[in-house]
Nucleic acid binder design. Sequence first.
DNA 1: GTTTTCCCTACAAAATCAGTAGGAAAACTA
DNA 2: TAGTTTTCCTACTGATTTTGTAGGGAAAAC
Lengths: 152, 152
Amino acid sequence: MRISARADYAVRALLELAAAGDESPVKAEAIADAQGIPHKFLEGILTDLRRGRLVVSRRGGSGGYRLAAPAETITIADVIRVVEGPLVSVRGARPPELSYTGPAEALLPLWIALRANVRKVLDEVTLADVAANRLPVLVRTLAEDPGAWTNP
Amino acid sequence: MRISARADYAVRALLELAAAGDESPVKAEAIADAQGIPHKFLEGILTDLRRGRLVVSRRGGSGGYRLAAPAETITIADVIRVVEGPLVSVRGARPPELSYTGPAEALLPLWIALRANVRKVLDEVTLADVAANRLPVLVRTLAEDPGAWTNP
DNA sequence: GTTTTCCCTACAAAATCAGTAGGAAAACTA
DNA sequence: TAGTTTTCCTACTGATTTTGTAGGGAAAAC
């Protein structure tokens, strides 16, 4: 289960916009520099985000990108869905589209539960939460468990 | 965040072994037929599972595969780690290896929390649980929420 | 009218995914 | 011992996805 570079970059780009506020747009190159993202690659990602209505853009001298909605209303799950598609998929299909037989029958509710627990984190955290370093209590609790940081 | 065909097939193959019990080994072809998995592809997966010490094999007439340990002691996370590597990775790296700057700093604890919540499901469910359709209460509860089955 | 910046298309190397093919080695059976 | 069965090993292939790069066109600001 991997988060692609596209998704990671998309979230970081939006966090820069969330931090910049609503006064003036931020240029793609400024975002790329701030977060160390290849600038032409980022442009493609920003196009996806615009088509997904998460950002609005303006061209010209004092142009750039702004969030299309308040940072408090955009969740991390929203971002991943725009750039990566479904949050969780199994063999390219969403869990409800799968069918299992024999001893594997209970796999379907398992994948559903997995997706539910992923949503519990990504659907609850907004860009504003991350940018201000104020994660919801549930998420803080999960992250504060010492075992959560050890590798296997 | 996707579960690959390899991982899905691996879990289903092991569930067939869990259901078969310990008496006699199950042939690769029998597993492939039972679960509708391409047989030569499955052979490669079973090799991984053997190298990962999740199954043992025997050749010849009455050969086949058996679980290397009781089904109650092998978790779904174990299986995914053997065939896919780390449970959750971001841009190919495990969360603790990442570093973020500026407004993205709180992304690291977020990915850690995400991984922790994935583990809460996959580390707690064993092959025996799924094969017998007796998922742990936590997982049942997650899967029974009606909203968990709706797509976006 | 010039500059700036987004916007669009096309391309491409590399990795991953999902298999296939053919046979060698080992174990069992008779 | 000979023959059958099944795992085990190596290699290969085609499709898709990922992660970018290159070059220029269109709109907006100044």
